[in-house]
Design a protein around this nucleic acid. Structure first.
Length: 210
DNA sequence: GGTAGGATGGGCT
DNA sequence: GCCCATCCTACCC
């Protein structure tokens, strides 16, 4: 896989402003495909994301209202919501919607662009580059994202999201969200069609054939 | 190619 | 005490 030097990436990109996120969650989720997550030496292009809505979306943490954990989701857009799950992993969400309204986007998979050797060190179980960040837990491991970043401003860093001038054209496929039981038929998962860096690649490809 | 089971701890009732 | 927006290994075709 070809590594894109971070220096070149920076010269050809700009950080997404808060206004990008201050929109309906589904719009933000779809538009995040192709954007680049950058944390330290590691950069990866988002290829899979899921929308989690407000009180009607029983699969969303925000459905229970404002608690110590969920308060970030109700806060200003363009911030990170990171939570700890299954006693072992972290999941990264980007907060959308105007302040006071719940909505966030779970980043489920990304295609590594820079800092690939670092990601390989952090993800020894990955057999192929395609598996380095092909799942929400894998992605946070590869990028070194933990709860320390919960509430962080995505326009200030250290975790930022970039619009790359060389962003490829992406055909978006829509499917149900993964790993939930409530609202299981809601079509809120968005994937870059045919991209091998998505989670459950074969399963996704099969499901989309029909 | 496929899947069953276990690891592990925080949030919430 | 139960659930959970997961992942990996072992094991079986």
């Amino acid at each position: 896989m070809e590594e894109v030097p971070l220096r070149r990436l920076r010269a050809e990109a700009e950080i997404l402003p808060h206004s990008f996120y201050r929109r309906p969650t589904v719009e933000v989720a779809r538009d995040l495909l192709g954007k680049v997550l950058v944390h330290g030496p590691a950069a990866a292009m988002i290829v899979e994301a899921e929308a989690y809505l407000g009180e009607d979306d029983l699969a969303a943490h925000a459905a229970r209202g404002i608690t110590e954990r969920t308060r970030v989701i109700f806060g200003p857009p363009g911030h990170a919501y990171v939570y700890f799950i299954y006693g072992m992993y972290h999941c990264l969400n980007l907060v959308a919607e105007p302040e006071g309204r719940a909505g966030c986007v779970l980043i489920r998979a990304a295609q590594p662009l820079a800092g690939i050797p670092v990601m390989q060190q952090r993800r020894p179980a990955a057999r192929k580059p395609e598996q380095l960040a092909s799942g929400p837990g894998r992605l946070t491991l590869a990028l070194g994202i933990t709860r320390a970043l919960n509430g962080a401003d995505l326009a200030r860093g250290p975790l930022t999201v970039w619009r790359w001038a060389r962003e490829p054209t992406i055909r978006i496929k829509t499917t149900p969200r993964i790993g939930i039981s409530k609202c299981a038929d809601w079509q809120l998962r968005f994937v870059a069609a045919g991209n091998p860096f998505v989670s459950r690649y074969r399963e996704t490809a099969r499901a989309l054939e029909r």
